[in-house]
Design a protein around this nucleic acid. Structure first.
Length: 113
RNA sequence: GAGAUUAGUUUAGGCAAUCGCUGGUAUUAUAAUGAUACGAGAGGAAAGUCCGGACACCAAAGGAUUAUGGCGCUGGGUAACCCCCAGGGAUGCUACUACUACGCUUACAUCAAUUCUAACGUUGUCGAGUUGACACUUAUGUACAUUUGUACACAGCGUGCCAACUCUUCUAGUUAUAAUUGCGUAUGCUUGUAGUAAAUUAGUAUAACGGAAAGUGGCACAGAAAAUAUACCGCCUUUUUUAUUAAAGGUAAGGGUGAAAAGGUGCGGUAAGAGCGCACCGCUUAAUUAGUGAUAAUUAAGGCACGCAAAACCCCGCUAGGUGCAAGACCAAAUAGGUUGUUUAUGACAUCGUAAGAUGGUGUGCUAAUCCUACACAUUAAGAAUGCUUGCAUUUUUCAUAAACACGGGUAGGUUGCUUGAGCUUAAAAGAAAUUUUAAGCCUAGAUGAAUGAUUGCUAGCAUGAAAAUGUAUACAAAAUCCGGCUUAUUACAACUAAUCUCUUCU
RNA sequence: GUCCUUGUAGUUAAAUGGAUAUAACAGCCCCCUCCUAAGGGGCAAUUGCAGGUUCGAUUCCUGCCGGGGACA
């Protein structure tokens, strides 16, 4: 089921820091993905988009929405449920969206069934 | 008329499908979340946080004063304003008028210079040199007084001028004609160029636009003088001298300095000058008239006394209590703690010592937990009743410690504040406008690691293209308690307004 | 979210509203030395940006831009 409810969000600071401390990272040109398998029914997503990527809020919000959409469409294919934190460290726009999509899929190929 | 640029105002594409997200309403299940259906879901600046408010809490009897900050032409609008509308004056820019200078075109006449040609002229003229005379200059010497001056004599160099002689060149010079250039006068320039202290008229733009005649301070350098005016070069008079040399006095027109020079321009006037007098303009004061008022106009008087800067201090008038929705209100876990309440348990012991105290035991702390060791702390007081062995025991109250439960505060967390409002749309009325009033209709985001997205199709539009068609479908930027403004960002699309420039046509 | 503070050579600082913006260290060039060090001389700033007030602005005023910090 391709849905995205509040149960799919990482919210507390403890949850974030536990994923960071697990120290499993995958790098790409635009993204950095921290992940940790959790024992829950759902995978959960956390996003980090810093002000250094772009100064304006509308561009940062756009990037967050795109990543959330990719997470929503792809996470039912994963073998178990993970806690995932995606960090953006380069600006992308609607023109570079397709390269971002291929990058995200290659980075999350590990999780697939 | 067309195009471009700049500035400003308005607008900020539409319809549909699939998969998702956040609220709302209804139904239904479960017990607080799920399912189904319906309908809603980002701006003109949501931004910057620069002003003004609503709202909430805190403080505060009421009033006044002081300090500090803000504002500052007039009238109106507004809940309020560093906001808006209208007006006043000021300043800048553009054009016009007037004046000045320069340039160009054409014409005229005369003068000057240069050139060409012709005539006259060669007993001439120009240049250079030598000699001499005179004048200036004055070393030096002598005499007299004494740190220097006076008188006399006076060489040489140099300068000026005159005379004579010598040398060199071959045309100088005069007259006439023509050409060129310059000056002058007049005319025109179908926007020629540049400027103008105080000014005229029109248009347009700008803004922290009270007071410099309450007081204190400032105005570098330059310059005579920088705010109590003053006199460098000058101008004039008188006296003086061989001499425009010197002295005294008058003056501030002109020059010079500076960002700024003590009302401006013109005429008269004067020895030269001066608001000394007059005309126009500006300034000050008073009166009258017009206007709600800022202010304007007119008249009279003054005769310049009053330079700039308050975005230096300051003075005058008006105005402001503080903190911000993370305000504030409510519910409330674990752990710890509470001058709270109830119940239960334990304790207030032994030896030595006159006493102070010491030792041991017991308890608590230190540990994730247990034991040992070390360390730290505590080991305390008072009253009543009953019994008898009369100073002991028991009971009880108070006290201390521990545990449990309750209570209240309160953290994490949650709920609320939260969106019906100085609201929006339409119409009518009042007003010059900002704006206001009335009537009818409407409900239009509310997130919290923070929703409003992704994909696809059609289409308005834009670009390319003869067409078919192809491409693009976009600028600046996203709510965070809510409103009114200001400031800043943006032209992608479309419309309108103004200014400037270019091109074309007509007169 | 509400506030405070600050911006000057590469760095750290200075400056009365008055003219080529000052000093130290670092950098570059030249001199000195056989070479280096030390020493001497020079260069290097659109005073964050844009407006305004003023005869004149690093300084005064306004608006933007950036840096740092505080509260909870």
């Amino acid at each position: 089921m391709q849905s995205f409810t509040p149960a799919h969000r990482l919210k507390k600071a403890d949850e974030f820091s536990s994923v960071f401390l697990f120290k499993k990272v995958r790098f790409g040109v635009y993204l950095k993905i921290h992940f940790k398998p959790n024992g829950l029914e759902n995978s959960r997503l956390g996003l980090v988009v810093g002000k250094k990527v772009h100064k304006r809020a509308n561009k940062r919000n756009y990037m967050k929405r795109l990543i959330r959409e990719l997470f929503r469409t792809n996470q039912p294919n994963w073998n178990t449920s993970y806690d995932v934190i995606v960090r953006v460290h380069k600006l992308f726009t609607p023109e570079t969206f397709s390269t971002l999509q291929t990058e995200f899929l290659s980075l999350t190929k590990l999780f697939n069934k």
